[in-house]
């Protein structure tokens, strides 16, 4: 899907941008709710981000993917909100919060045959596709909730592990364990759902 550059002024295009913004709303909401754990604040924040996006459509020059751009606006609003709270709802971790990665490795700690990482074909090209990021987000939301929270704080909001530990009240060691498992799960999910799925690419 290509979005024109100066075409934003065009009424028809403006309407299609509106539709596009509405289409991305559920994904933004899922993301905000994951971080804030509070439906109302999440809805307000997403509404705020969508309005900001709509008002600055003329600043969207098409050099970024449209969804990435809207996502970036939400990201800043989320970071402000999280930092203003100083401390997020602390999480207490039990076994269910840690994704299970036991099946990736055999008893001797080497890769299980069926789980050996496979070559990925032209991964860079995937980044250019909005659909890749949809699959990516689905894979993230398949992680246990607290794992998905830690992963998105780290990789999508760009916080350091010590800041994450402070706001969530967990040890840095815990953080590393969670991120390790999250990344292995995500790698396997992307491989299965995108890179080895020919229809998708």
């Amino acid at each position: 899907m290509q979005w024109g550059v100066a075409a934003v002024t065009d009424r028809q295009d403006s309407e299609s941008y509106e539709k596009r913004l509405e289409a991305v709303r559920p994904r933004l909401l899922a993301f905000a709710r994951l971080q804030l754990g509070d439906q109302h604040t999440a809805e307000d924040l997403v509404q705020d981000a969508l309005l900001a996006a709509y008002e600055s459509l003329d600043r969207f020059r098409g050099q970024a993917k449209f969804e990435t751009w809207v996502f970036g606006i939400l990201r800043h609003k989320l970071l402000d909100e999280i930092r203003s709270r100083k401390r997020l709802q602390p999480i207490s971790l039990n076994q269910d919060d840690y994704p299970d990665i036991e099946h990736f490795f055999a008893a001797n700690e080497m890769w299980e045959r069926a789980e050996i990482p496979q070559p990925w074909h032209e991964p860079e090209q995937a980044l250019e596709k909005d659909h890749f990021w949809q699959v990516f987000d689905i894979c993230v939301f398949h992680l246990p909730t607290n794992t998905a929270r830690v992963f998105t704080l780290r990789e999508l909001l760009g916080m350091d592990t010590d800041e994450i530990c402070d706001s969530l009240g967990i040890s840095e060691q815990n953080c590393w364990v969670i991120l390790h498992r999250a990344r292995l799960k995500l790698r396997a999910c992307l491989e299965k759902s995108w890179f080895l799925n020919e229809e998708a690419s």
Binding site: F60, Q63, A64, T68, W69, V70, F71, G72, I73, L127
Partner: peptide, 8 residues
């Protein structure tokens, strides 16, 4: 993805 969101 973050930078793409920041760039515009």
């Amino acid at each position: 993805r973050k930078e793409g969101g920041d760039a515009s």
